[in-house]
């Protein structure tokens, strides 16, 4: 979808030419190496990158080699510079990507993360080489179910910061969650780890929208997965407009068996950029639970 023309407030951007894997690629000034790779058709894996968020470049799975640099460079955040020579797929980048996948795979449950299993194969990653759960540290822990709208399963959390950024300054500005602690003990938390109902959470679900691994999940989805009835192949997605206030947020309804099982919002829509409020995100029950006759 291309958004309707908005009055331009900036001058047209200059084009910058860089070299990716031997080919010249021209992209607008200000684009990232990742943007350039997309233009070039180069597949670069990403986990912490969010299309609606400032890059935190924390996962490091998107690293590339930029000639003249001592270390590898996160493609999601580094802006192109004229004449940059980028190698995306050599032994060095493949090694770091493999290690990131292995390190994450050894400590986090990635089974609900889209694409990851494919990358594991592509990069020949073997997370089991570090030992088993009894001999090494993982983030395994019980699922947090403290409200009826969404659950938090931090066994699946790769600490990409996206939920924190969506809850915080970049979008929702509720600041209910943060990264607490340090090092391997760093974790997503409310203050003193109080439950969501005692926190500043307003249940907009904008954290769920950006979570790349299923650590944050609609309770409906969680319950259906537990009951083995979650079937994405059977689901349809339909984008419509929220039935509540007059802002006109676009909702994408995920339906299975004529039931709404999840609500998202298009990330490329200028009204929401993927964000909703509690009414838009969770206010669909009235069309399916009430006896309407």
């Amino acid at each position: 979808m291309t958004m309707m023309h908005e009055t331009p407030v900036a001058l047209p951007r200059r084009a910058v030419t860089i070299t990716i894997d031997g080919d010249e690629v021209k992209v607008p000034e200000g684009a990232t190496i990742l943007d350039a790779c997309k233009v070039h058709g180069t597949d670069v894996p990403t986990l912490c990158y969010g299309d609606t968020l400032d890059p935190v470049n924390a996962c490091r799975v998107c690293v590339v080699e930029v000639e003249g640099n001592r270390v590898l460079i996160p493609s999601c955040s580094r802006k192109v510079e004229p004449g940059m020579v980028v190698n995306t797929d050599n032994e060095r980048t493949r090694h770091s990507r493999r290690m990131v996948l292995e390190l994450l795979g050894s400590s986090v449950d990635l089974s609900a993360a889209p694409n990851v299993q494919g990358w594991m194969q592509q990069y020949d990653a073997d997370p089991a080489r570090f030992g088993d759960a009894n001999t090494m540290r993982t983030v395994q822990q019980p699922v947090k179910v403290d409200n009826d709208l969404y659950v938090r399963d931090y066994s699946r959390c790769i600490l990409c910061y996206k939920c924190v950024d969506a809850c915080g300054e970049q979008w929702q500005n509720s600041f209910a969650i943060t990264v607490a602690g340090r090092g391997f003990d760093a974790h997503i938390s409310t203050e003193f780890d109080v439950g969501l109902p005692d926190s500043a959470c307003v249940y907009c679900g904008n954290c769920i929208e950006v979570c790349p691994t299923g650590a944050l999940m609609f309770k409906t989805e969680h319950d259906m997965r537990q009951a083995n009835t979650w079937n994405e192949a059977e689901q349809r997605q339909t984008t419509t407009v929220c039935p509540y206030c007059g802002v006109g947020c676009n909702l994408t309804l995920h339906t299975q068996d004529n039931t709404i099982v999840k609500v998202t919002s298009p990330h490329d829509h200028a009204i929401t950029s993927g964000n909703l409020c509690i009414k838009g995100r969770f206010g669909f029950q009235h069309v399916q639970t009430f006896a309407r006759d």
């Binding site: 509690i278 206010g283 009235h286």
Partner: peptide, 18 residues
Amino acid sequence: RLDSYNTGVQSGAIASPL
């Protein structure tokens, strides 16, 4: 309020912790 809407006909079904 944040989690309710007008006379509550639609929003009443939200299992809102708020």
